[in-house]
Design a binder for these strands. Structure first.
Length: 370
RNA sequence: GGGUUCGUAGCCUAGCCUGGUAGGGCGAUGGUCUCCAAAACCAUCGAUCGUCGGUUCAAAUCCGAUCGGGCCCA
């Protein structure tokens, strides 16, 4: 694979992603400066994830805003495949979704696809995926979603509600569609083959437009959903995509829940965070201090800097100083790491407290079948 | 129901025909080097070869059964 090759699919992300190319490949739209201005005007704030291009692409976000301005509210939908513990990369779209909920005052559905992870991970049992679903739900709730307007759907639990919608969808998808979209073969179990219709279901749970914030790698699922929507008399879901969060160990992969050392979990202790960052975070620094002072570091490939940019340092002025100091060689990699460690640990201290409280709130968040 | 194929460390895999208790790659771990990380270089851990039984002085290797996965046909 050459330097400018990259692969982005729902199951595999590899290489240095050129997001402009990806927009062309996927046929999505770049979030333009006009669109940014418009969002800013409506919400009264330009969220740093938008401003910095962490959310960089969309499908029909303009339609959602058009409707909203006419007084027609939309709702939000996102989800998570509970194949393991939550890591900080997962929080990026959720955090943004929380902001959207606050600003637009809309309903939110969060789908935990325990069945899908059971189907797709040979070694996971349904018991385990259900356990992770519960664990992941705590992290979601901990971010402060409005309990009046937020419902968590667990596929195996809420199948009664999902199934009639999924059936409508499933009837419109044939085997060729799923094979082409997901690369299914004759070895693929039939749970997987049906599954995408279940992931589509929450898009149609309310008779309103839906906006889905999600990692761009998950876009293919909803390309299919968007094709089906008009056929069953529904509106196409609109999407807003975030970039892939790099693994601690460097660019060229997304943070994976199965790679312990390249991943910071929401339940990690301060010393674990410190150790992981110091020992594993890929740096853009020079081989030694002398050269670093002389040549400076490269913040654009430095994972610690990227984490600050993506999530942990919302203040542009502070971020800019870090960027310039690192680039000039004034700031050493170890010092940059120390900044990040401090940021992550103070975030996690609060998050973990909220996560504990979430254990008592979870009941009110769980979707109840009617 | 019939046929076929596979089952060796976390993952991929050599060895099976021509029996003598397993070799490699990736990964993991530790060290050297770095302000860190990476790279590089050292070193280390890790498999009773799906299970049970048989043949044999000796079986991952041959035979039988059984369990599990895949594919094809019905």
């Amino acid at each position: 694979m050459s330097a400018d090759d990259f692969i982005v699919t729902p199951w595999h992300v590899e290489g240095n992603i050129d997001y402009d190319k990806l927009i062309k490949q996927f046929g999505t739209e770049k979030i333009s400066s006009e669109l940014l201005e418009r969002i800013k005007k409506i919400t009264g704030e330009d969220h740093f994830m938008l401003r910095r291009g962490i959310f960089f692409s969309h499908r029909e976000l303009t339609r959602i805003l058009d409707e909203y301005e006419k007084g027609n509210k939309f709702f939000l939908y996102t989800g998570r495949g509970p194949s393991g513990h939550t890591h900080i990369g997962h929080l990026v779209p959720w955090m943004f979704a929380k902001w959207l909920q606050d600003k637009f005052d809309v309903n939110m559905y969060f789908q935990l696809t325990d069945d899908e992870k059971f189907y797709s991970k040979p070694n996971l049992t349904l018991e385990e995926t259900k356990k992770f679903a519960y664990e992941n739900a705590l992290d979601f709730i901990a971010l402060g979603f409005n309990p009046e307007k937020t419902k968590i759907i667990i596929n195996t639990k809420n199948i009664q509600t999902l199934y009639p919608i999924a059936a409508e969808v499933a009837k419109k998808i044939n085997f060729s569609n799923t094979k082409a979209t997901f690369g299914f073969t004759n070895e693929t179990n039939i749970g997987m083959i049906f599954y995408t219709s279940l992931q589509s279901a929450p898009c149609f749970i309310e008779d309103k437009p839906v906006l889905i914030p999600l990692g761009v790698d998950q876009d293919p699922h909803f390309r299919l959903t968007r094709d089906i929507a008009p056929k069953i008399g529904k509106q196409k879901p609109a999407l807003i995509h975030n970039i892939m969060i790099p693994s601690l160990e460097g660019p060229g992969g997304k943070m994976s829940a199965s790679n312990e050392k390249g991943t910071i979990y929401t339940t990690d202790s301060p010393s674990e965070v410190k150790n992981k960052i110091n020992k594993h975070a890929f740096s853009g620094g020079q081989p030694d201090i002398e050269q670093h002072r002389k040549l400076g570091g490269n913040p654009d490939i430095d994972v610690s800097y990227q984490y600050l940019r993506i999530f942990f340092e919302p203040d542009d002025a502070k971020l800019k100083i870090i960027y310039e100091d690192y680039k000039s060689g004034k700031l050493l990699s170890g010092e940059l790491k120390a900044i990040l460690i401090e940021k992550i640990n103070s975030f996690l201290a609060v998050h973990q407290e909220n996560r504990e409280k979430a254990k008592n709130q979870i009941e009110q968040f769980l979707f109840e079948d009617k």
